[in-house]
Design a protein around this nucleic acid. Structure first.
Lengths: 246, 246
DNA sequence: CTGACTCGTTTGTCAGGACATTCTGACCTG
DNA sequence: CAGGTCAGAATGTCCTGACAAACGAGTCAG
């Protein structure tokens, strides 16, 4: 049963060993070399085969368990999960998601300017009331059709954003490129009817159902780096979320 | 700066030491003894103080980092996150969420019976086509108002569910009580306009925006244990999701 | 005054070992 | 034949020890 998957390690690489192991196991699962339900070698044997210690192997397996690819049970072993595994949730923007899905996203920047911060937004982002923040409003297209209206507020000085940048890439990619390390995001997802203005932008009728998302993203140190209020055409888009209970 | 938080350990308890440590740190954060942004003692010192080894302390801290309560940075230390920390996402049902929010949920069971499985559902749940599964349809109230229409499909024999049980508790609680260990859930969240039938049940107008959720839940071993198709009144409910990037 | 460099601090990675707990399946008993 | 019992196997927890890598601050040279 235990497919003898070949894993080669590069001890001179800066990539941690546990990560090299995890990636190659994940790749084997994706390729189908490790069938769903099949059992992995036990940790000690695996460690022995690869010339690594058990903690390192455990760390690799734990990483994949957290991502939902593997399942461990005491006294039994480690198995590849049965169900088709969806990509675990990641901190990506709509743009990245669409490009991965081959949808050819396009962006039209409607507003990009500093504005006095609204009291409500100041509280969320933790900036002093009365200061200025960057306000951003975009219209997002996929496959030539309007898909969403995106409103964002960002602390000033976080990154130099130009309209040209924003039309070619997603906001998250640009922030990451500027050294912002996002770690936690809070999302509130709801629905409501489209206003006249929204309907016009999205080529829907007034009152058409829209999916709404409020998101606040925090960095490394828990500082808010972005707050967004987005509306999506429900007829063209839905959100996917995967929950994993530890 | 380092608040000398008192942590007492019970080595005779079956609760793992790392978990005892994690819980008490989390409690200190909730109480406010550990202010947001404050630094914890470094791992070695902490281990020394508590008479534990560094890996154990690391495991405790890692657990809290995964939950989004703490932030680690190499060469710097471990800090309590700044932003208000929301409870991390868990595999709970609407019922549990509402009860936690003090909303006094109520349930009316509309249908509870075995039915021949639809081809589409059979594929999702991984049961043979043509077999029977349990079909469940409920109307959920909160604070006396209708909130959602819930449709569920479950493999037969998973748990003995009665209408009486379901009116007093959430589905997830009942499943857990029956020994089902849910681990992964895939959710697709969208929106659409209410049909006439839905509008009548939910006391909305036809065409009112509804939040829709398709969810498939898998257990321990990756077997599907539940599939649900739910619609919520957008005017009364929204979903909250927290993402944490490792 | 500014920029590069060094150094101490702290977390990240890895090794190897020991015992506890839990699950499965085979065996035995009533 | 049904049920409980026990042994083997696997992961869970915890320990000690060591070195590497990254960060921040202070220092020194230009």
């Amino acid at each position: 049963m235990t497919a003898n998957l070949a894993i080669d390690l590069d001890r001179s690489s800066p990539v941690p060993l546990y990560f090299q192991v995890a990636e190659q196991i994940a790749e084997a699962i994706r390729r189908g070399d490790l069938a769903p339900g099949s059992r992995l070698d036990n940790e000690i044997l695996l460690a022995d085969k690869l010339g690594l210690s058990r903690p390192t192997i455990r760390q690799a397996i734990q990483y994949l368990v957290d991502k939902g690819l593997l399942v461990r049970k005491r006294g039994v072993g480690t198995q590849v999960v049965h169900g088709q595994v969806k990509r675990s949730v990641e901190l990506t923007s709509l743009y990245d998601d669409l490009r991965r899905a081959g949808q050819e996203p396009a962006t039209q920047v409607l507003v990009l300017e500093p504005r006095p911060v609204l009291e409500e937004i100041a509280a969320i982002l933790g900036v002093p009331a009365g200061s200025e923040i960057l306000y951003l409003e975009r219209l997002r297209f996929a496959a030539g059709e309007p898909l969403a209206v995106l409103h964002n507020w960002l602390p000033i000085g976080l990154a130099k954003l130009t309209a040209a940048d924003l039309e070619g890439r997603g906001l998250y990619e640009l922030l990451r490129g500027a050294g912002v390390r996002m770690r936690v995001a809070n999302q509130r997802i709801g629905a409501r009817a489209a206003t006249q203005a929204e309907a016009r932008l999205l080529e829907e009728r007034r009152g058409a159902p829209l999916l709404t998302m409020l998101r606040t993203t925090y960095d490394d140190q828990g500082r808010a780096v972005e707050h967004g209020s987005h509306v999506y055409r429900a007829s063209h888009y839905s959100l996917e979320v995967t929950l994993i209970e530890r």
